[in-house]
Simulated scan of single mutants.
Amino acid sequence: MKRIFFLSVSIIIIIIIIIIMVSFFYWQNNDLVITKHVINSDKIPKGFNHYKILHLSDLHNKNFGKRQEKLVGRIKEEKPDVIVFTGDIIDRRSKDLKPAALLIDQLVELAPVYFVPGNHEWDSDLKRKLETLLMKKGVVILTNKVRIIERNGERIEMAGLDDPESGLSIRSSIKRISEKMQPDLYSIVLSHRPTWFNTYTRAGFNLVFSGHAHGGQIRLPIIGGVFAPGEGFNPKYSEGIHQQDHTSMVVSRGLGNSSFPLRIFNRPEIVVITLQSE
């Protein structure tokens, strides 16, 4: 009788542990967190004071509720002036454009959207279909291109670097956009890969948005991110703001997953940057 009792108790405890673990992993991979930063610079025109940039990255075809309603709802609350997406909105293993299409349909109703491809766009058979969709919806694809943004009679510039998976190196892409940029304007650059931070700094970019690292996938106290593609273990550029000279780089932890299916202590992230003229 005692054996049956202890066996029953053990089974109940195991079931409770499994329920707790499943709930925890679901929460870690689906509950969105919003991270906010202020970027100060005397190069930011006063006309762009309090200009709000919402940064998304690495969706990897993930759904956040029916029709992406959870993600779009959180974005709406922030009332961004512009939305930037730094690649991997699709996943190379998927043949489904629907999660990306549902998100883009709604983002363009909220603010102008700028996009640069990541390695998964270049590795996917859906790349051309995605580009056609983005252009049809009015998204600006900044593959080695520069655009001027005007506000309150003043200007800044937004540029984007193509992913090296395209066959063109980061340095070659930087050379292409640098020839088109105006040194007197505050520069914002989108690039999927954060590991080239020193190169972005030498190029003189003021503000860089990047992703790719997925926050290190698993984050631990003190250690931070555990592993990131292109950086290996204990990655230096897995999330947050990195500053060197006159360059700030914002690295998003991203929204979805790729090869490794779980996020641990690393919830999906929306980043909001507010510009402040000094």
Results as ranks from 00 to 15, higher is better:
residue 265 F to Q: 01
residue 99 P to Q: 09
residue 155 R to F: 12
residue 188 I to P: 00
residue 7 L to H: 05
residue 18 I to T: 11
residue 143 T to V: 10
residue 34 I to V: 15
residue 67 R to F: 06
residue 63 N to R: 12
residue 46 K to N: 15
residue 228 A to Q: 03
residue 211 G to W: 02
residue 147 R to V: 15
residue 70 K to Q: 11
residue 69 E to N: 10
residue 27 W to R: 04
residue 38 V to G: 04
residue 195 T to C: 09
residue 154 E to Y: 14
residue 124 S to F: 00
residue 34 I to M: 05
residue 58 D to Q: 06
residue 22 V to K: 10
residue 159 A to P: 08
residue 109 E to S: 15
residue 199 T to S: 13
residue 235 P to T: 09
residue 162 D to G: 12
residue 187 S to F: 04
residue 109 E to T: 14
residue 125 D to Q: 05
residue 68 Q to T: 13
residue 78 E to M: 10
residue 206 N to E: 14
residue 224 G to E: 04
residue 84 V to C: 12
residue 115 F to E: 03
residue 64 F to W: 03
residue 135 M to G: 09
residue 189 V to M: 04
residue 35 T to E: 08
residue 133 L to S: 08
residue 11 I to D: 05
residue 207 L to M: 15
residue 265 F to G: 00
residue 194 P to L: 06
residue 141 I to F: 04
residue 66 K to L: 09
residue 251 V to G: 01
residue 230 G to H: 07
residue 165 E to F: 02
residue 146 V to L: 09
residue 16 I to H: 03
residue 248 S to A: 15
residue 105 D to M: 07
residue 243 Q to W: 15
residue 244 Q to P: 02
residue 272 V to A: 11
residue 2 K to V: 10
residue 272 V to F: 07
residue 198 N to V: 11
residue 25 F to L: 12
residue 172 S to C: 09
residue 176 R to P: 05
residue 148 I to S: 12
residue 117 P to F: 03
residue 240 G to C: 14
residue 53 I to A: 04
residue 46 K to W: 03
residue 26 Y to E: 10
residue 38 V to M: 08
residue 146 V to H: 06
residue 41 S to E: 08
residue 163 D to Q: 05
residue 24 F to A: 06
residue 152 N to F: 15
residue 34 I to A: 07
residue 160 G to I: 14
residue 219 R to G: 00
residue 58 D to M: 11
residue 64 F to Q: 00
residue 2 K to M: 06
residue 199 T to D: 11
residue 3 R to S: 12
residue 171 R to A: 14
residue 220 L to G: 06
residue 55 H to K: 12
residue 149 I to R: 08
residue 158 M to G: 02
residue 93 R to A: 15
residue 18 I to E: 09
residue 45 P to R: 01
residue 250 V to T: 08
residue 178 S to F: 04
residue 85 F to Y: 14
residue 150 E to C: 08
residue 136 K to W: 10
residue 11 I to H: 06
residue 230 G to Q: 02
residue 38 V to C: 04
residue 268 P to R: 00
residue 190 L to Y: 03
residue 67 R to C: 10
residue 255 L to P: 00
residue 19 I to T: 14
residue 85 F to P: 08
residue 56 L to K: 08
residue 127 K to H: 01
residue 214 H to D: 12
residue 145 K to D: 10
residue 150 E to T: 15
residue 125 D to E: 04
residue 149 I to K: 11
residue 219 R to I: 03
residue 79 K to Q: 13
residue 142 L to E: 06
residue 67 R to W: 03
residue 232 G to M: 10
residue 75 I to Q: 01
